[in-house]
């Protein structure tokens, strides 16, 4: 069905440096990501959001190279990306269907494909019954799901989700992980989160970012193996996370 790919990795970054205002938030990141669900972990201010913005091509890297799908025209690359920003802003007066179809239009999908793709995206996040309700009438968790629906409406090959599980209740989080596993089968999904258990349960691969640098990349099992009983944390993977960040030794950490 799909044409053979001409690139090795969906996302390939070399020595990437990205500024957020005057601060260098991402400082020399070298990273290759292929299909699967990649969890992006790190303390607040580690540069997760800035890195995701750079991957979404809305922020231009200060130096280094970033190539998505082996490079190419910005417009073509963007048509293959799905992006849920951390502060997901929306139009309160739009219905779920209107909002997702507006994003589909912005993504330049052929107009005859839009209604079916919109319906499918809304179904996948479990909002079919609220499809014609206005966004201002939805709860916070439902709004997040609208955010996920607009990101997946174009069947993206690279899906970038910045803190998608904020505001989801435990059942919805389980359903979200299932959806990620489904999508990760044929797309490169990058999920930034500060919840270590999200990563443990749903990700095939973990990237830990600390002060703008990649300090760990590997499977959740390898992360768990990095910790020992001495490191703070309630689960093996939390202890591995603390060990990787060397948390107790950090000045001013809490």
């Amino acid at each position: 069905m799909t044409a053979p790919t001409t690139y090795a990795w969906e996302i390939e970054a070399r020595e990437l440096r990205v500024k957020a205002g005057r601060r260098t938030a991402v400082d020399g990141v070298t990273l290759t990501l292929g299909r699967g669900v990649h969890g992006l972990l790190g303390p607040n201010g580690a540069g997760k959001t800035t890195l995701i913005r750079a991957l979404a091509t809305v922020v231009k890297p200060a130096s280094g190279t970033l190539s998505l799908f082996g490079g190419g025209d910005l417009r073509d690359v963007r048509a293959r990306i799905g992006y849920l920003p951390q502060d997901f802003g929306y139009y309160r007066r739009f219905t779920v269907r209107d909002f997702v179809s507006y994003v589909a239009w912005l993504k330049e999908m052929p107009s005859r494909d839009v209604p079916a793709a919109v319906q499918r995206a809304i179904d996948r996040v479990g909002l079919a019954e609220r499809a014609d309700d206005k966004l201002k009438s939805l709860s916070g968790g439902m709004i997040r799901r609208v955010g996920i629906a607009q990101a997946i409406v174009n069947d993206p090959e690279v899906l970038l989700l910045d803190e998608p599980t904020v505001g989801l209740d435990p059942m919805q989080r389980l359903r979200f992980r299932e959806l990620m596993a489904e999508l990760g089968a044929d797309a490169c999904v990058v999920v930034s989160t500060h919840l270590v258990e999200d990563v443990a349960a749903g990700c095939s691969d973990v990237v830990i970012l600390d002060r703008g640098k990649v300090v760990f990349q590997g499977t959740p099992a390898r992360l768990a193996a990095a910790g020992s009983g001495d490191h703070p944390g309630d689960s093996p993977i939390e202890r591995g996370y603390s060990a990787t960040l060397a948390l107790p030794d950090r000045p001013g950490s809490w």
Partner: peptide, 12 residues
């Protein structure tokens, strides 16, 4: 409110 979302699309 959706400026960041819109800026990331091919039509931007």
């Amino acid at each position: 409110p959706a400026h960041e979302l819109v800026s990331a699309t091919p039509r931007a």
